[in-house]
Computed example of a mutant assay.
Amino acid sequence: MDKRMQLELGEYLPDKIPGFYGLSQIEKFAGGQSNPTYLLTADSGQYVLRKKPMGKLLKSAHAVDREYRVIKALQYSGVPVPRALYLSPEPSVIGEMFYVMSYEPGTIYWDPALPELTPQTRHAVYAGMNKVMACLHDIAPSEIGLDDFGRPGNYFERQIARWQQQYLESIDEPDPNMLRLVSWLNANSPQDDGQISLIHGDIRLDNFIFDPQTTEIKALLDWELSTLGHPLADLAYQCMQLRMPNSSALKGLGGLDRKALGIPSEEEYVGLYCQSRGIDKISDWSFYLCFSFFRFAAILQGVMRRAQQGNASSDKAAAYGELAPMLAAMAIEHLETNNQI
């Protein structure tokens, strides 16, 4: 942000956020692929601002107003989130819609192998994420005013259609593996079982802020993709990412000895979740897993398109976007290995 924007926000925010005064610095966070995020330093303390990116945007993407609504609804739910402080109108004083939330200092871990921690602490970190996810899915959306936060009907059918469209809008020549994967998902979508909860949509290690001393989770961030949907979509999405190679631009745990590291295996991690939520077993796991590969590949292809257009939030956007074909290939390999395609 330039000095002009700093001056505009410095004059604007004191009338919108109680106690805010003396804005002196705005610094962009390096992480994040979608909505640019900034640390605001003021005489009254530190805050975080998230805004829509500049330029032409895909339809329904970068919905910072939805993100703000979720954070505000979860303030006293038991799910740790920052305090929601202000949502701007659109267009805003800085040109794009934005919101301001509290700054929650702590540690963000970027490598899921957690090389800086002991095996016991690694296990605690993963158990903590699992517990927060299960807590989120146990909340009745109507109890926090979010019963209208998603469309009715089969979540997976709607999501496959949405991300197929977004993928095709983000690429000139579709990947044959993605087309094959979409065909399999459409043909193998499980019957709607009626499960519906608030889902985060981007559950991963680097969206959690941890207390560096206790490993307690202080906040779950980045709710842009949240909606009402099937809770197993969140669980499968995290497990999918942990299957990715540890050497890739977005690190997973693929190829590592999780037992030696003290990190639960996929089976153990799913078991912890089922135990927390009182679930006996999960059927159709390959579908949920491959849906997650497809959806994440579509998301990363959108990241690549924004990098090509010059309005990506991160300087790593192109490297992340290049992972989309790998994800589609991993899904197809999983299906072929398990004789499902």
Rank of each mutant, 00 (worst) to 15 (best):
L256Q: 09
G254Y: 00
E224W: 11
P212R: 08
S189D: 05
D192V: 05
T227H: 06
I217R: 12
P231R: 12
P176N: 07
G255T: 05
S247R: 05
S247Y: 03
F208G: 06
L232I: 07
I199P: 12
L225S: 04
L261H: 00
A236F: 01
T214A: 11
L232T: 03
D206K: 07
D222N: 00
A187N: 14
W223M: 06
L250D: 04
N207C: 14
I209P: 01
D222E: 02
F208A: 03
P245V: 00
I199L: 11
P245G: 07
E224I: 02
L221H: 00
G252P: 04
R204V: 05
H230W: 02
L228H: 08
I196W: 11
R243L: 01
R258C: 12
M240T: 05
L198F: 07
L205A: 04
N246M: 01
G254F: 05
W223S: 13
A233C: 12
P174F: 13
L198S: 04
A187C: 10
Q191H: 15
S197Y: 06
M178H: 10
H200V: 07
A249P: 10
N177H: 14
D222K: 00
N186Q: 15
I196D: 05
Q195C: 14
L261E: 07
Q213G: 15
W223Q: 10
I196C: 14
L256V: 00
D257P: 09
D172P: 11
D193P: 02
R258K: 13
L261K: 04
W184I: 02
L220K: 02
L181M: 13
N177F: 12
L181G: 08
D234S: 06
P190R: 06
W223Y: 13
A233S: 14
K259F: 10
G201P: 00
M240R: 03
L220T: 03
I209G: 10
I196A: 09
L205Y: 06
N207I: 09
D222C: 04
D172E: 15
S247P: 00
A219I: 02
P190D: 04
H200P: 03
P190Y: 09
D234E: 05
G252W: 01
L221R: 05
H230E: 04
D257E: 01
G254M: 08
L179I: 15
